[in-house]
Design a protein around this nucleic acid. Sequence first.
DNA 1: TCGCTCATGTAAATAGTTACATGATTCC
DNA 2: GGAATCATGTAACTATTTACATGAGCGA
Lengths: 185, 185
Amino acid sequence: MARRPPLEYALLGLLAGQPMTGYGLRRVFASTPMGVFSDSPGSIYPALARLERDGLIRSAGQSGARRGSRLLEPTRAGLAALRRWLSAEITRDDVARRIDELLLRFAFMDRHLDPVSVDRFLGGLAATVSAYVNELRAYAGSAGEPPSSTGRLALGHGIAACRATAQWARRARAEWRKSHGLDLP
Amino acid sequence: MARRPPLEYALLGLLAGQPMTGYGLRRVFASTPMGVFSDSPGSIYPALARLERDGLIRSAGQSGARRGSRLLEPTRAGLAALRRWLSAEITRDDVARRIDELLLRFAFMDRHLDPVSVDRFLGGLAATVSAYVNELRAYAGSAGEPPSSTGRLALGHGIAACRATAQWARRARAEWRKSHGLDLP
DNA sequence: TCGCTCATGTAAATAGTTACATGATTCC
DNA sequence: GGAATCATGTAACTATTTACATGAGCGA
């Protein structure tokens, strides 16, 4: 039940999609927009060692004929941990400080949660982000100390970015519902 | 010249605006949208100790009549380090992985850089983010492996968020130019 | 055979988180 | 007198970054 760093869930989610070697995972981080994570061996291999130590991934044969290379795959416990992470409630703090992790969760969802849960996630995300936008606006309005001009503009960026996320969530939800026949409110 | 973590620059920037105690800084992180940083004493006090050890901040008297409390202020070297950080080139990696740090820099800029430098920053930001949007779009178009449906939607979020940032940068720049009489191309 | 890609790891330094620990002052 | 706030720090643990280190296989 212990909380794990996002990197470990990213690894778990990728391996659930397709068994890979540690090097394969590094290439994914180096060559796709998942590049928020470092592709350095010093972050990947220790994370994989922790996952294996805790029984969340295991070896599943070799890559080609290469000695020493290990294809890795999640165990049943690993898939359960992944599903728990995907199903966690969205909090205000997730939105304010860990928005990237929420999007990472969403990216893995279709393979592991049912369409209704995905729909609920997008609804919850839109609602929580909108609430946070109101919080930011309230702060911008009150303005305890007279803020600097670029400080005020920077806060405007925070608001604009959150509004874009909320709008994206609403549109993604509409699209999701359409393609899964979820047409009730 | 050594690179420092964003938290230290945030502290330096706040202290440059107004000398404060460590506790005062914690309150700022706890009560404003700068809450991306933790307000825990275990992060703030060690960071302040590093800054003081390196001669970037110093004591500037006590807070009220409270024994043991220390108002902190940047030294000349601290202000120079802050200005160097504010003036650094914007890289593709800053945009892809450290966008929050760029906005933090912008928030402190008006007090430490001239209007033309701030204008250049916003221009560079808009350009670099737009280039990154193109990169993301190219990736979305090529799509090596058939991506999952939520994976594709999540990439759409990345694109939407960057577009919002680029748009914000262009608008903020127009506003900045207007209020500082920078009307050349 | 030379260089590139595939492949795995470790070591040291740095940082961040959580929890613990303490004590003064102020307000009710 | 008791609670909240002001105020500063340390300890243990966890994670990340950078750099180092090694070696096999493959193509030109």
